[in-house]
């Protein structure tokens, strides 16, 4: 068996607004559009994946928050309706997805070997979180690849960002080793926004783009700081800054997804491709790809 590899890693945020704006048949709510910059950014990300042959999507998701270790989906298929608890008016999505349980279990086992507390989720009635569905839909709307879904352990709340990052670095290493041992080609998704202070009100027409902007200038400056580090290939520096960034912008990086991704990619020192930056109800969102082939050039 040939060695498996990560064919690309991507920062793939999950505002349900982007699915709502796309009007896919799976979503009950319909819109007049909106958030085009980000949706076109996802188009560019998909285009960058069009020449990639991959077998599985591995997603680390803030909206499956666990406090007792990190959990993994452990059943081979799920079919149900996902309703966003925050934006139910926008996102009521009928999903039907497959899980690569073998790879899921392999990452679980590797993480356990590295000292992390882990658990397989094997209840068939479990409902998949909307973050996972949104990111996976926007990257692969055909849903023709199985996924591995990893919960976000919220050690930041119980300890601090540094503990969270240390755990996510271990989880990233465990993910990479499992992919390599599997012989599979994997696409990795960090399903999170950057700055994450929302508006607390919604326009009468949610897709009214005249109302959309970043919540405050501080968030914008911090988002740009992090994105420029990505563009410059300075991901270790970005990880070093992550606790401050997270604190200053109540960033969704608190969930650990981006730290996990950087670790799985072995902290890229090559330039990331920023496909888009835009805001959704005040939060900062970037769509960014890391192509390991660039490391080899």
């Amino acid at each position: 068996m040939s060695k498996g590899e990560i064919v690309m890693g991507a920062l793939a945020p999950h505002p349900p607004h982007l699915v709502y704006a796309d009007n896919p048949p799976q979503n009950e709510a319909t819109s007049e559009g909106g958030w085009e910059e980000l949706r076109w950014g996802y188009e560019r990300l998909r285009e960058s994946l069009s020449d990639k042959d991959y077998d599985v999507i591995i997603v680390h998701t803030p909206h499956w928050a666990t406090f007792i270790g990190t959990h993994f989906l452990g059943i081979d298929s799920f079919k149900s309706l996902s309703v966003d608890p925050i934006f139910p008016n926008l996102f009521r999505y009928n999903y039907d997805l497959k899980v690569d349980v073998e790879l899921s279990k392999a990452i679980h086992d590797n993480a356990a070997d590295s000292g992390l507390l882990v658990k397989m989720m094997e209840n068939p009635d479990f409902r998949i979180d909307y973050g996972t569905i949104t990111s996976c839909h926007l990257v692969n709307p055909e849903w023709n690849k199985p996924i591995v879904c990893i919960s976000s352990n919220r050690s930041k709340f119980y300890f601090n960002s540094e503990v969270m990052q240390a755990n996510m670095i271990k989880l990233g290493e465990a993910t990479r080793k499992a992919v390599e041992a599997s012989g599979k080609k994997a696409l990795l998704l960090s399903s999170n926004s950057l700055s994450h202070r929302h508006f607390t009100v919604e326009p009468e027409v949610p897709e009214d783009m005249s109302k959309e902007h970043v919540t405050n200038h501080n968030q914008y400056l911090w988002d740009m700081k992090m994105i420029n580090l990505m563009r410059d290939g300075k991901t270790k520096e970005m990880i070093d800054l992550m606790p401050d960034f997270t604190e200053q912008t109540v960033a969704e990086t608190e969930a650990g997804s981006l730290t996990w991704l950087m670790s799985a990619l072995n902290f890229p020192n090559y330039k990331a491709t920023v496909h888009a930056y835009g805001t959704v109800i005040g939060t900062g969102n970037a769509i960014v790809g890391w192509d390991p082939r660039k490391a080899k050039i």
């Binding site: 499956w64 928050a65 666990t66 406090f67 007792i68 959990h71 658990k119 989720m121 094997e122 209840n123 009635d125 479990f126 409902r127 979180d129 919960s151």
Partner: peptide, 12 residues
């Protein structure tokens, strides 16, 4: 039919 996201092993 509900499943808790943390304590899913306790049942539905």
């Amino acid at each position: 039919t509900f499943v808790d996201e943390e304590f899913h092993d306790l049942g539905s």
